[in-house]
Amino acid sequence: MTVLAQIASGFSGLILLTLSLLHFYWVFGGSLGKTKTIPADPQGKLAFVPGKAVTALVGILLFTAALCPLCMRVENVLSIPKNVFQYGCYFLSLIFFLRAVGDFKFVGFFKKIKTTIFAQYDTRFYSPLCVFLSFLLFLSACS
């Protein structure tokens, strides 16, 4: 694995782990930033209201996603072939790229609703982060 791929793997794993922990923070009652992370229409009606179970599931999925690039850095993790993690990184790279493109209504660079607080944060932070993660995960997989 090249040095660049190792750095990309470590950094993408750290970002995904941090996002996972943020979701668990919300599951256990935290509220910091929560109002800026749910899409809404211009009248303020939320696109969906995630419950604790869904938020915990997202946290678990993000934690599992963090394992793919991190396990790329080490050999023979639980006798799982390295190419499983490599394909996982390619898959995650695609998922985060698609998230950055968006659903053409609430999320992504091509969203129609652009005036809400979420939309502003999505344009400035969330979608660029998804492109960055997509790039890092692709670099991790290409090692």
Score class of each variant (00 low, 15 high):
51 G>S: 07
83 N>Q: 12
68 C>L: 15
27 V>T: 08
43 Q>L: 14
16 L>P: 07
48 F>W: 12
55 T>D: 02
37 T>D: 06
44 G>H: 11
98 L>C: 12
75 E>G: 10
94 L>P: 02
105 K>E: 14
81 P>S: 11
62 L>M: 11
130 C>E: 09
140 S>Y: 02
51 G>R: 02
26 W>L: 04
37 T>V: 14
117 I>T: 15
134 S>L: 02
4 L>S: 10
28 F>M: 06
127 S>R: 03
9 S>G: 11
35 T>G: 14
102 G>A: 02
118 F>W: 06
142 C>G: 10
68 C>V: 12
122 D>K: 02
41 D>W: 01
142 C>N: 15
30 G>Q: 11
79 S>Y: 15
33 G>L: 06
85 F>N: 02
57 L>N: 04
132 F>L: 10
55 T>F: 04
100 A>C: 03
39 P>I: 02
100 A>Y: 09
98 L>R: 03
39 P>A: 04
56 A>S: 09
67 L>H: 09
34 K>S: 09
61 L>W: 15
8 A>D: 08
54 V>Q: 10
37 T>E: 11
6 Q>C: 10
13 G>C: 03
99 R>D: 04
131 V>M: 07
142 C>W: 13
7 I>A: 08
30 G>T: 08
141 A>C: 05
111 K>V: 01
103 D>F: 01
18 T>N: 07
69 P>H: 05
64 T>D: 09
65 A>R: 04
50 P>K: 01
22 L>Q: 14
107 V>F: 04
97 F>V: 03
129 L>V: 11
1 M>C: 13
57 L>G: 00
30 G>W: 12
39 P>M: 04
7 I>M: 01
53 A>M: 10
60 I>H: 03
104 F>V: 07
120 Q>C: 10
12 S>T: 11
107 V>T: 13
24 F>Y: 10
136 L>A: 05
2 T>M: 08
95 I>G: 03
103 D>T: 01
122 D>P: 11
73 R>C: 14
69 P>I: 02
89 C>I: 00
132 F>V: 03
56 A>Y: 10
31 S>V: 13
61 L>I: 15
106 F>Y: 15
19 L>G: 13
143 S>W: 09
138 F>L: 12
101 V>D: 02
114 K>P: 12
136 L>R: 00
111 K>L: 00
142 C>F: 14
8 A>S: 13
74 V>L: 13
20 S>H: 06
29 G>E: 10
10 G>D: 07
59 G>Q: 01
32 L>S: 14
14 L>V: 15
94 L>V: 15
120 Q>T: 14
